[in-house]
Design a binder for these strands. Sequence first.
DNA 1: CATGAATGAGCTTTCATTCAT
DNA 2: CATGAATGAAAGCTCATTCAT
Lengths: 240, 240, 240, 240
Amino acid sequence: MSATPTKTRTASPRAASTRKTGVREQAAQTTRDNILKAATKVFARYGYEGGSVEKISKAAKSFDRMIYYYFGSKEGLFIEVLEETYRRMNDAESKLDLATDKPIEALQAVIRFVVSYYRKNPEFITLLNTENLHKGKHISKSMRAREYSSPAIEMIRRVLESGQAQGLFRKDVSARDVYLLIAATGYFYMSNRHTLSAFLGEDLETPDALAHWETFVIDSVLRTVAPGPHLPKGKAAAAA
Amino acid sequence: MSATPTKTRTASPRAASTRKTGVREQAAQTTRDNILKAATKVFARYGYEGGSVEKISKAAKSFDRMIYYYFGSKEGLFIEVLEETYRRMNDAESKLDLATDKPIEALQAVIRFVVSYYRKNPEFITLLNTENLHKGKHISKSMRAREYSSPAIEMIRRVLESGQAQGLFRKDVSARDVYLLIAATGYFYMSNRHTLSAFLGEDLETPDALAHWETFVIDSVLRTVAPGPHLPKGKAAAAA
Amino acid sequence: MSATPTKTRTASPRAASTRKTGVREQAAQTTRDNILKAATKVFARYGYEGGSVEKISKAAKSFDRMIYYYFGSKEGLFIEVLEETYRRMNDAESKLDLATDKPIEALQAVIRFVVSYYRKNPEFITLLNTENLHKGKHISKSMRAREYSSPAIEMIRRVLESGQAQGLFRKDVSARDVYLLIAATGYFYMSNRHTLSAFLGEDLETPDALAHWETFVIDSVLRTVAPGPHLPKGKAAAAA
Amino acid sequence: MSATPTKTRTASPRAASTRKTGVREQAAQTTRDNILKAATKVFARYGYEGGSVEKISKAAKSFDRMIYYYFGSKEGLFIEVLEETYRRMNDAESKLDLATDKPIEALQAVIRFVVSYYRKNPEFITLLNTENLHKGKHISKSMRAREYSSPAIEMIRRVLESGQAQGLFRKDVSARDVYLLIAATGYFYMSNRHTLSAFLGEDLETPDALAHWETFVIDSVLRTVAPGPHLPKGKAAAAA
DNA sequence: CATGAATGAGCTTTCATTCAT
DNA sequence: CATGAATGAAAGCTCATTCAT
């Protein structure tokens, strides 16, 4: 890496805008951003191995060399792509304004948000799949990993507590599990839509199909957190 | 090369054993099988781009050239790997012996099977993710695609019907949706375990964690199919 | 080569038909012929390096191995292709029935034959070009090379002699040179038609263009052999 | 790679020398030129298929990779080789200084030039043969193709006109046909010298043989353009 | 007589990266 | 601050040929 300014990056766009930046600095920032955006697209589309340095630099209308200048290596670039991707997701989650006093609606809103976020950001899914293919080795190299634990879980916790206090939700269910259930249903449906379409013989991406799945997921989650026995009365014993 | 035996494969090992096979023919079958097995491992571990022809031929203790001899191309090999992978999964599903007269237990058994199949065959997951990264283009080239629509759905359909007849399950729930719910929860948990571990700050693969998740999924699915309103009585209106 | 019957070839089709040939022998002959024909096409189209053993065996609907069985090597096959090609050309020339007593018409007939042979057998040209690219190394390995010296030269010699006797042709012109002149004009026009077309900006293969060239060549050859001074009277001195 | 300088080539060496060129820039130009020169030799000797990228890069004392850096592909390199080869031929033709007022001598000079150019530049012939084997597909991809239509034809036109005006040449003969006649005889003799040597049983490249052929060609062309009937008087009717 | 299987060298091309200003 | 040039390893694939019945 030698003298490359790999860590020159400004932590956030806000920080950058509060101080005077020279023209060259802005141009550099633009180049860096272009590469980051291009890399996100390319890695999301072709995976880590399939996303070549050349594809990225071309898509960014820059040069291979610039990637090494700003990010040190292909791996360094991928790590920043992951960080940025998580950061954007968390930013979006943070903007969710939930009416905690209406827990059912709030929970529905969370589900709708998650499902639609995956729908609108399919690159999030492919990037995560790529990273999981590599057993998380890139994200574990990122010093920022833990910063990114989803704010959604904390939100769900508050919603659940509110619902439990109002007697709407049962008490023996954790925010973590509910979050995983929501994420799983939203993620899997989008992540595997191509193979599922082939094997179910139907298109999963029509508006109707998407709406149907969202409704089903909301229903399933609400039933999961609803109070009452897990089986119809008198039948629970049979399953034990 | 010329006149490659790309499609010479015997449909099943049983068919092959009913007629006399020469030594060389057997050796050939072995070479082909070795390559297929090695390719499954390598593709599952490194993805399509990362799984190089050389890695595969070395793992199979054969030669690059043999891959082209038997499969025509890297892509042809990958397609056969996908087909074989699906076939094995379907074979395993087919062996499930469900007590249809006890629908709750039967449904639990299906969930346990699916969850544990994903757990024990992580290569199934990475292969499917790889294929979805490529938008299903390989599987759509396979003439066998539709043969592989999961027998699990049909099983679930029968279990649901039985449960509905016995008044254990509600009637407005489809086998397809229940199947997707089960698959989603089982698949996502394993598929994303590395990134989830990093961000939840906990190990998802301990026996306890796995058991906890299985229990939660069973509970969630059973609640989803259980009869009764989707919200606690008198509260449904509020959510509308 | 070991035990391959490389030299089993029957010298001529006539020899083969005079004795009883078994069914298998005929099948073999067919395979051999198919390969030879396919090889002629493939080598003519793709050159020696570009004409792969696989392309040939595929075109012959046979197997790579058969090429080695019948011809020993790719080079051996190419040599036989060359021999066969020359033999066919000589056969065709031999069938020319010239009226030696009418030397002008006879010479015209020779020219028409040569020009139209090249036109109808473009593979003859590309094969010869390929062989010349290799500096004639294959044909020099053929024991039959000298057998194939063109009968056309001998014919031209007789025609010239007849014409000279009749006072129609001048005496200081050799059959060899006239043959080369005819061959050159016919050959070059066809051989280089693609690059010529590109650079002249016209299509050389229209019937009109072909007829025009034939007429020009006939005229040029007849003027070349016509008696009289090589320059208009009184002007020859100026050129000396 | 990215942003390859495939088309960065300076149009002419003169243009390059008018501005300051850095050391590296010069080195690059050298590398490019070395490759182009080496490729010309290698393609001329082994043909397109036979001229491997490795042979070329080795001959240029460079690396395979550089061929793709500067020319994009093997085909791109071959196209530039063709262009350069044509350009050199046209440059040489342009330097011919003809005494148009002495048409016979001028025509002889043209013939001598063409014949000797082919003799001294055999790679011109093999490259053109290679390109014609490929049916001119590379040259048709070159945007410069039409620029290269031979200046020789224009020269011959002027010579013919002058000769016609002086009554030395007949009027019903076109420059194009004369050019083709000259090119054909010069080209064919060199192009096919190896197979012709084998079949005529004589060496065509001795100084005597070459001189004899040149003389014959000059004689033939002059007779072709000379005024007077195309057949000796009183005999023309017989051939009709 | 015929042929599937095997082989290793070679092909064109792309890879991530470093050099040298 | 930026970039053209260079590099060698490795990619997927094809080559002509031999092995072993």
